[in-house]
């Protein structure tokens, strides 16, 4: 959905956005700070504390039921969660960019039509369910990819990437088509600019904003999904910490009065997702303020609805 900027409200609009942008950046900075502090803190598996120690000078985030330091675990977990999300979205984008541009560029070509059609077809499967099924079915077997044994983390990344490809392809394709149909492209072609040059110099750079917004949104969805899947026991296997694993452990173990156990890793997770979403919002507004390359039914509204 476009948020076309109404007239005459420029100042407050800029102020609001600036505030949101700063907040978003601050939240992401907080997320990264926890990650860094956790990495510096040391081994997330070491049993170096008394079980269920509340947050205090010796353990800023407290300890879990086995006596592991929760700062170290939350930090390492944040890194793993971020890594899984970035790699899966990165993979999906790497596949979707050429696929989307080519199908948008050669939209009349039969192969492009088939690919487009296939993408539309896959798109109608509920993605979270699809990932649950993919992981649920593959959890019981060893998988070899190019001779390398695929770990559970690898499976998680690949499944998420697979789920994101149709979505990203659609975004890129629509943006490419919107770009190609704009008048200046026709003008440039009339002026004798070669199509290949046009692609590299004009279309690609203009695609970037739309793709960046969607990548940001996909990132926030991926962080959410990683946590949810790990929560369900389908993600990165414990004892390796991820934010989802930590929340799940806090939920499945007896906590006594250990309020910190689920609260702190969850807050870090929320900080990460909210931060990325805020930046995506700001970016969407910036773009729609300047130009409207995002297609009609922009997936900007496709957010984790839960």
């Amino acid at each position: 959905m476009k948020a076309r900027r109404p007239q005459g409200l420029d100042l407050s609009w800029v102020r609001t956005l600036g505030w949101a942008g700063i907040l978003g950046a601050a939240l992401i900075a907080a997320f990264l700070a926890v990650a860094a502090a956790g990495l510096l803190r040391g081994d997330p598996l070491a049993l170096d504390g008394t079980p269920l120690t509340p947050p205090g000078p010796s353990h800023p985030f407290g300890t879990d039921s086995l006596g592991r330091d929760l700062l170290a675990r939350t930090g390492h977990g944040a890194v793993t969660s971020a890594m899984v999300s970035v790699v899966s979205v990165g993979l999906a984008t790497a596949v979707a960019l050429p696929l989307g541009i080519l199908t948008g560029w050669f939209r009349r070509h039969p192969v492009a039509s088939v690919v487009t059609w296939a993408v539309e077809l896959v798109q109608v499967v509920p993605p979270f369910i699809a990932v649950v099924v993919l992981l649920g079915l593959s959890a019981d077997t060893d998988h070899q990819v190019l001779g390398v044994r695929l770990t559970a983390t690898g499976r998680l990344i690949l499944s998420l990437a697979v789920a994101f490809v149709p979505f990203m392809t659609r975004v890129v394709r629509s943006a490419t088509m919107a770009e190609l149909s704009s008048e200046y492209v026709d003008g440039l072609i009339l002026l004798g600019v070669r199509r290949r040059e046009l692609l590299g110099r004009e279309v690609l750079p203009n695609l970037a904003p739309a793709v960046v917004v969607q990548v940001l949104l996909a990132l926030s969805v991926a962080v959410f999904a990683e946590g949810g899947l790990s929560y369900l026991g389908l993600g990165v296997p414990p004892p390796a910490p991820t934010l989802g694993n930590l929340i799940a452990e806090a939920g499945t173990q007896l906590l006594g009065d250990a309020w910190w156990y689920a609260l702190i890793p969850g807050l870090v997770l929320v900080a990460g997702i909210t931060g990325v979403n805020l930046l995506a919002d700001v970016a969407t507004d910036r773009i729609s303020g300047q130009r409207t390359p995002v297609p009609e039914n922009s997936p900007a509204t496709d957010e984790p609805a839960s």
Binding site: P6, L9, S12, W13, T16, W19, A20, L23, S220, F224, G227, G228, Y231, G244, I247, A262, G266, L269, V270, I273, T274, N277, L278, D281, E303, P304, A305, S306
Partner: peptide
């Protein structure tokens, strides 16, 4: 739109979509 009421609602709605249900 783009007045304080809007800002509050936008932020609330954004947080609402960002908080993971399982947590």
């Amino acid at each position: 739109v783009h007045r304080p009421g809007d800002g509050t609602i936008r932020l609330t709605a954004l947080v609402a979509v960002s908080v993971p249900s399982y947590w």
